[in-house]
Simulated scan of single mutants.
Amino acid sequence: MADLPPHVVRTPEARFANLPEWPFAPQYLTVDTPGVGPLRVHVVDEGPREADETVLMLHGEPSWSYLYRRMIPPIVAAGHRAVAFDFPGFGRSDKPTEAGAYTYELHRTVLLDVIRQLDLQNVTLVVQDWGGLMGLPVATLDVPDRIARLVVMNTFLPTGTETPTFGFRAWRASVRLLGRRLPIGRLMTMALPDRQKPFVPAYTAPFPSVRYKAGAARWPLMVPMDPTDPVAEIMVRAREALAIWDRPCLLVWSKADPILGGAHRFFERLVPTAEPPTFVCGGHFLQDASGAEIAEHVVAFVERT
């Protein structure tokens, strides 16, 4: 690990050995990030590179690309390219140890560089949780020419003017209190249905100690709670772009999400092309409980549009 920038750690590969339902060999890109330097970013890139359609899936907090393990195979089986990656601080990607390193611009830079390094075109962008806060602004403001469709799942675009749900206020307060002591295993155990609890160790694998948790402890606190927050301005611009979005948009939602279970109504009103929402089982991490079913909806959506 001598090639790592100062104040960056890398989860040992042994932590990811024999993960259930994870047959994908790791691939890595190097991204030069603002204020940190070069970071190694883990990418899953399956299916034919020459495929006409690419499905790019973005994870949120505190998950990683493992969340999409049940969606990737059906998408590839349909003949499409399936791409997922881990944002810095998560999964197999490098993890700065200083909380201040995690900025919106850091994550935006990584997302844009992954798209450009892999030369992703005709993208169906799948977003959930912080994947939406990152992906929807980038899709609509930075690379709209590369985006063919949007699939929006249990996310939001907060501008600091809304009253957060009780579930989010409680979540944010606990993260602020616990910081790097955030019990990710307990969190995932509470969030996943009983039948999914055997997969909790895969979600804790990236975090062998508190030193690796700066990104997980930082993301919830980056959600804008005041309109003067710089991230709030980005969310406002993304809302404006989505209000005139003219490409297909699929909403897939789990009503059982205690934080964002009703947010589908916001996107129904905002996006002119949004189809009536498709509801699936699961809580906040609906991909884990219903990934194969969601993949069927995504493939059908791509084919009919």
Rank of each mutant, 00 (worst) to 15 (best):
A238Q: 09
Q121E: 14
A2Y: 13
E303K: 15
W245S: 04
R92F: 07
L39V: 12
A217L: 07
A78R: 10
T30N: 11
V31W: 01
P34C: 05
F156N: 05
D113H: 13
T11M: 02
R211W: 03
L242F: 11
R211P: 00
E98W: 12
R92Q: 13
A295G: 03
L56T: 06
V252P: 00
P206R: 14
V76C: 07
G132R: 09
P144Y: 05
T124N: 04
L118M: 10
L58N: 00
Y66F: 15
T189W: 14
L242G: 04
R15K: 12
D194E: 15
R172D: 07
W64Q: 01
L19P: 00
V271L: 05
M188E: 01
G100Y: 07
A274T: 09
P96H: 15
W64F: 12
A274S: 08
I115G: 12
F87Y: 14
P74H: 10
L56P: 02
M188H: 04
E13I: 10
H264E: 11
R237K: 15
Y66D: 04
A17L: 05
Q287W: 01
L29M: 11
M57W: 00
E50Q: 09
C281G: 09
S93N: 13
D246W: 10
P48W: 04
L157N: 04
R169W: 04
P224W: 00
A173N: 08
A17S: 12
Y212D: 01
E50R: 04
P193A: 07
G160P: 02
M153C: 11
F285A: 05
V43A: 02
T97D: 13
M134F: 11
D288A: 13
Y203N: 10
G179R: 11
P34H: 08
V36L: 02
L141A: 09
P164L: 05
P276C: 04
T54N: 06
T30E: 14
D113A: 15
A216I: 14
I294V: 15
P276W: 04
I115Y: 13
V55I: 12
G91M: 06
S209D: 12
L192W: 01
P227D: 13
Y68K: 02
R149M: 03
F199I: 09
T189V: 06
R149G: 04
R239P: 07
I147K: 00
D229Y: 04
L133M: 14
P224Y: 00
F207K: 03
H42E: 05
S174F: 02
R108V: 03
A205I: 00
H107Y: 15
A202T: 00
A78T: 11
T103M: 14
A216K: 03
P248N: 06
Q196I: 01
P48A: 12
M71Y: 01
D288G: 10
L150W: 07
Y102G: 12
R69V: 02
L58C: 03
